[in-house]
């Protein structure tokens, strides 16, 4: 029971990571820097909780905010770089942060941060304060894990909702325009610098939040959690799930996380499958499993259902 709750919780965190890459990609920028922002968020949250005793509802957003603040100058500096160059520069950022985390004393070096206050444990202690017994016939630990899952699911839902709403607005149109044709977008009056840095910082914020969640879900984080492999993993979620609809990365995270739980014993087999999937998706279905066309069809159906008389006219 607790195991399934945990898997579902990690799917939610992965979904947030997928969305963080999706956001940046929605302005046509391929970033491998979000693993670095995740590291920033994770260590920030962990250290604030350990050293300063901040409550967890503050440490997680603080990690996200720090990541976003760092992302603004980084994004602006990388702005002139396109495609390949941007991917490599942001990978350089990630790798540099990993080396730094590996060497600083405060981050615990290669051993990482230990004894990070755990969200589930905290909740359990909190519930015991006023509940004699967990509801629904669950044990207190299971109930706490369920609440953890609900919190992470709510955060994923919130991030998803924000991205969908933003996507339907003037800002979202600017993102799509830049992604499609940056020159034409700027000729249409869009400040491409502003929107690219905006997307970069928003993605960093989500990655930072996910890092903070990760820190408080696992007791322990180390530099090895946030390197190239992590950067690629997030990218796989998007590539498999769908690169141009927000539901894509969430689906990708859910599918691949579930798959990796089945292959838990064989990490290398899991990565072989990840790799093969990336290759295959690019070759056969470059937009990913979910495409905007599917959602346009769904939208039309929904409109017809809501207004049966008007449906024919459209």
């Amino acid at each position: 029971m607790s195991y399934y709750l945990q898997v579902a919780t990690f799917i939610c965190v992965s979904g947030i990571l997928g969305l963080s890459v999706y956001l940046v990609l929605s302005t046509g920028q391929l970033t491998l820097g979000n693993a670095g922002f995740m590291l920033l968020g994770g260590y920030t949250a962990g250290l604030l909780a350990i050293k300063l005793g901040w409550p967890l509802w503050l440490t997680v957003p603080a990690g996200g905010l720090l990541a976003a603040v760092v992302a603004v100058p980084l994004g602006a500096a990388c702005l002139r770089l396109r495609g390949v160059y941007l991917a490599v520069a942001t990978l350089g950022f990630t790798q540099s942060l990993v080396v730094i985390a590996n060497n600083l004393t405060i981050t615990g070096g290669a051993l990482g941060l230990k004894d990070i206050p755990n969200l589930g444990t905290r909740l359990q202690r909190y519930f015991r304060g006023f509940l004699a017994e967990a509801p629904f016939g669950l044990t207190m630990a299971q109930f706490a894990n369920l609440v953890v899952l609900l919190i992470c699911a709510a955060l994923l839902g919130l991030a998803f909702w924000l991205i969908v709403r933003q996507g339907q607005s003037r800002v979202g149109r600017a993102f799509t325009a830049i992604r499609t044709d940056e020159v034409a977008a700027s000729a249409m009056g869009i400040n491409t610098t502003y929107y690219k840095v905006l997307a970069f910082a928003q993605g960093a914020f989500l990655a930072g939040v996910a890092g903070g969640l990760m820190a408080h879900l696992t007791y322990f984080i180390g530099p090895a959690d946030f390197g190239f492999s992590r950067a690629v993993e997030m990218l796989v979620f998007v590539v498999v799930g769908g690169t141009s609809v927000p539901a894509g990365p969430v689906l990708g995270a859910a599918l691949l996380r579930t798959l990796s739980e089945y292959l838990r014993e064989a990490k290398d087999l899991r990565l072989i499958i990840y790799g093969a999937l990336m290759l295959l998706m690019v070759l056969v279905r470059p937009q990913g499993l979910l495409t905007p066309g599917m959602f346009a069809g769904l939208g039309r159906w929904w409109q017809r259902r809501r207004a049966p008389g008007k449906g024919a006219a459209v």
Binding site: R170, A177, G189
Partner: peptide, 8 residues
């Protein structure tokens, strides 16, 4: 609507 960007 993208063309109208700067006017919104």
């Amino acid at each position: 609507l993208v063309g109208a960007h700067a006017r919104l």
